[in-house]
Design a protein around this nucleic acid. Structure first.
Lengths: 128, 128
DNA sequence: AATAAGATACGAGTATTTTCGTATAAAATA
DNA sequence: TATTTTATACGAAAATACTCGTATCTTATT
């Protein structure tokens, strides 16, 4: 049961930091650590280390021109979300995106959300 | 960055075996291993061990009345898919299911799929 | 200039997941 | 009955992910 190394799938800890970077924009380790600390107790050097690993994996880029390096996501939130969805579609939905979509929708979905999705479906139909 | 132990989220290897069980129905280790071997090279005792761990975690149930135990999923494919989606919504879509749905849909979605989803939306609207 | 504060690098410990070899028991077969 | 085949259990190694302490360097402060 080997893993696919071609896909750059962030681990959970990495995804936590990516989420912060998408919200904050480029940030130093200190800034990121402060934000993480609002919801978790994680050491400063732990955050630093994970960012260094993410840099090796090219999940983030960094500006080293100043002493405190400034980290930024290598890929947009959109691209990463799509990648994570693609992975889940393959591993849990037999490759069928529509099955995933239909499973995601349930009676907790609001009228507004339903309307938003309808509009997107209309747009997609026009394009094809 | 600790993990949530309350949620029973299968690991990747575990999900692989669950997929097989959902397709095959209840099966022995040997049967499961044979199926796994069609796409991967994994030892017999590796599959056995993972099933034993899954049994401890109650991801599967098993019938021990015969020498060769018969394993079956503890939860339906539907329940597990929903659980995995919920997890992804929280960790990568800020808790918004509609954002996930809209990201999942793109111009590779076929007309048939679009129509299927439309019908589901109609049904949901009626219920609420 | 000396000291303190703040930064990165890096090794290594811990936890989790995946892997498989070996021991042992039960059943089939010779 | 003896032997071979086929099971499970279990320990532990290997791979991956997460955590942090300490060394070292740079900048700021006294």
């Amino acid at each position: 049961m080997s893993r696919d190394k071609s896909t750059i799938k962030p681990t959970e800890a990495e995804l936590t930091l990516l989420n912060i970077l998408w919200r904050m924009g480029p940030a130093t380790v200190r800034q990121i650590h402060e934000t993480v600390s609002q919801t978790q107790t994680t050491g400063y050097t732990t955050v630093l280390k994970i960012l260094q690993i993410m840099h090796e994996k090219t999940l983030v880029i960094r500006d080293e021109s100043n002493r405190a390096h400034v980290y930024a996501p290598a890929n947009s939130e959109m691209v990463t979300q799509s990648s994570l969805l693609k992975d889940l579609v393959l591993k849990a939905f037999g490759g069928s995106t529509s099955k995933l979509v239909m499973r995601a929708l349930d009676n907790s979905t609001s009228k507004e959300e339903i309307e938003d999705i309808r509009q997107l479906l209309n747009q997609l139909e026009q394009q094809s």
